[in-house]
Computed example of a mutant assay.
Amino acid sequence: MPARAERRLLREDPEATLTAALANGNHYINDYCFVFELRDGLIHRVRECVDTARGHRMIFGEVPQ
């Protein structure tokens, strides 16, 4: 019988904000959310969700259209 998988968004603090100083002196700040997949009460997989477009803008600047 295959193990049952559950997905849970932890209520304690599944979100984090990453801040860093980039090599060019600019600041990076972006929010992250983590989704934990459990199997038999143990962490099986962790998924990280982030705004990649915002991260790209913070590192490389606006993209010309």
Rank of each mutant, 00 (worst) to 15 (best):
Ile43Met: 10
Ala21Gly: 09
Arg54Val: 00
Gly25Lys: 07
Ile43Gln: 00
Ile29Glu: 15
His44Thr: 00
Phe36Asn: 13
Arg4Gly: 07
Leu10Gln: 12
Ala21Arg: 15
Cys49Thr: 05
Pro2Asp: 09
Val63Phe: 14
Arg7Tyr: 08
Thr52Tyr: 11
Phe36Lys: 12
Ala16Asp: 06
Leu22Tyr: 02
Asp31Ile: 02
Asp51Met: 02
Arg4Lys: 14
Val46Leu: 07
Asn24Lys: 03
Arg57Ala: 09
Asp31Asn: 11
Gln65Pro: 11
Ile29Leu: 04
Asn26Trp: 05
Gly61Trp: 01
Tyr32Leu: 15
Leu18Glu: 08
His44Tyr: 12
Arg8Ser: 06
Gly41His: 02
Arg11His: 08
Leu38Phe: 15
Arg57Ile: 04
Gln65Thr: 07
Thr52Asn: 09
Gly55Trp: 06
Gly61Leu: 02
Leu38Ala: 01
Ala23Val: 08
Leu42Gly: 02
Phe34Leu: 09
Ala23Glu: 11
Leu10Glu: 13
Met1Phe: 03
Asp40Cys: 00
Arg8Ile: 15
Ala5Cys: 04
Glu62His: 04
Ala16His: 10
Asp51His: 00
Arg45Cys: 11
Ala20Tyr: 04
Leu22Asn: 04
Pro14Met: 06
Ala23Tyr: 04
Pro14Gln: 08
Met58Gly: 01
Ala23Pro: 08
Asp51Lys: 03
Leu42Glu: 15
Glu62Arg: 10
Glu12Cys: 03
Ala21Thr: 15
Glu62Trp: 02
Met58Cys: 07
His44Asp: 12
Pro2Ile: 02
Ala5Val: 05
Glu48Leu: 15
Arg7Met: 09
Met58Arg: 13
His56Leu: 13
Leu42Pro: 01
Ala20His: 08
His56Phe: 10
Ala21Glu: 14
Asp40Arg: 08
Ile43Gly: 06
Arg54Asp: 11
His56Gln: 10
Arg11Asn: 08
Cys33Ala: 14
Arg57Leu: 10
Asn30Cys: 05
Leu10Ser: 10
Arg7Thr: 13
Asp13Ser: 13
Asp13Lys: 14
Val35Tyr: 12
Leu42Val: 11
Asp13Leu: 05
Pro2Tyr: 01
Ala23Thr: 06
His56Cys: 06
Thr19Met: 07
Ala16Gln: 13
Gln65Lys: 13
Arg39Ile: 02
Ala5Phe: 09
Leu9Cys: 04
Arg39Met: 07
Asn24Gly: 01
Cys33Pro: 00
Thr17Cys: 07
Leu42Trp: 11
Glu62Lys: 08
Arg47Met: 03
Ala3Trp: 01
Arg47Trp: 09
Leu42Phe: 10
Arg8Gln: 13
Leu22Met: 04
